[in-house]
């Protein structure tokens, strides 16, 4: 059983919604980013998404755009991101790590080498924003050979016909983009999402993680009833940006993550 499967199984048995936290690799710099990464599981993160910085992140709002720029300025690249995961794995063999990013740096690194190196470092899954099902076959095949899950995305624009296409080849879990927009914008209306999610759940048994626009413990709690996991990104990244030179501290991040985890303590 993969780390992702084990995690969802355990949480399901405990009747808890998983907390998925997003950080940008190398933000604000390698050392601090690694410290934050290592602190996340003990603060309550069940799954960690690690962003791979890119100069042209067309699906991201300004918070995550800037995180990527800070990381790139301080020398981040795929080699160092994979190295960071390897370092994390030396002390944690249970928390799933999902690498999230855009296609070009991966194509530049080499798809086959990337899948191999990521799997060897202990990565569990990939979310590549600009590889829709129409274009993901090559990387999905290579990833699958290495035991990596290519996580597919579902959005408010996904109708039943499109859903079939997305589910054909989906694995790990499904990432539900709850709004039509970029990361870090307004929260979705949970009422209107429910019908759509009910339709999706009738077609698949894969766990569903809900992301985009979830910032506070209140948001997380509201969304926790709709899916198997909630993803929090921009509000965590917002705390990370001040670590180091700007006087912020890692405890600002762990405090937020703990409070997010706390509200997800029970679904009952």
């Amino acid at each position: 059983m993969s780390r992702i499967e084990k995690t969802f199984k355990a949480l399901n048995e405990a009747e808890r919604t998983a907390l998925v936290t997003f950080i940008m690799a190398g933000d604000p710099d390698y050392e601090n980013s690694l410290k934050v990464l290592k602190s996340l599981p003990e603060s309550g993160a069940d799954i960690i998404e690690v962003g791979m910085p890119f100069t042209d992140p067309a699906a991201d709002g300004v918070t995550i755009q800037r995180a990527g720029q800070r990381a790139l300025k301080n020398g981040a690249n795929i080699t160092r991101t994979i190295d960071m995961v390897k370092n994390f794995r030396s002390g944690n063999n249970t928390t799933p790590i999902i690498l999230m990013g855009y296609a070009n740096p991966i194509y530049s690194y080499g798809l086959k080498q990337f899948a191999k190196d990521a799997a060897f470092a202990g990565v569990d899954g990939l979310i590549i924003v600009d590889l829709p099902p129409e274009e993901d076959a090559e990387l999905r095949g290579l990833a699958s050979m290495q035991g990596l899950d290519m996580i597919r995305l579902i959005t408010p624009t996904t109708d039943e016909k499109r859903l079939e296409k997305i589910l054909d080849g989906a694995c790990g879990f499904l990432y539900y983009v709850s709004i039509t927009g970029v990361t870090g914008t307004a929260k979705a209306n949970s009422e209107s999402m429910k019908l759509h999610l009910d339709m999706i759940k009738s077609k698949t048994n894969l766990p569903i993680a809900i992301g985009f626009g979830i910032k506070t413990p209140n948001d997380a709690q509201e969304m926790s009833y709709l899916g198997d996991a909630v993803v929090v990104g921009s509000s965590i990244v917002d705390k990370i940006k001040d670590i180091g030179d700007n006087g912020g501290d890692i405890s600002d991040v762990t405090t937020l993550v703990s409070s997010l985890s706390y509200v997800l303590g029970s679904r009952l």
């Binding site: 699906a59 296609a103 924003v129 600009d130 829709p132 995305l153 499109r162 997305i166 983009v177 039509t180």
Partner: peptide
């Protein structure tokens, strides 16, 4: 039919945009 000119072209966009 998938918009490929040899290996180039295609539809490398976020899933939200695919139906559109």
């Amino acid at each position: 039919e998938h918009g490929h000119f040899g290996r180039y072209g295609g539809r490398y966009v976020a899933e939200t945009l695919m139906p559109l």
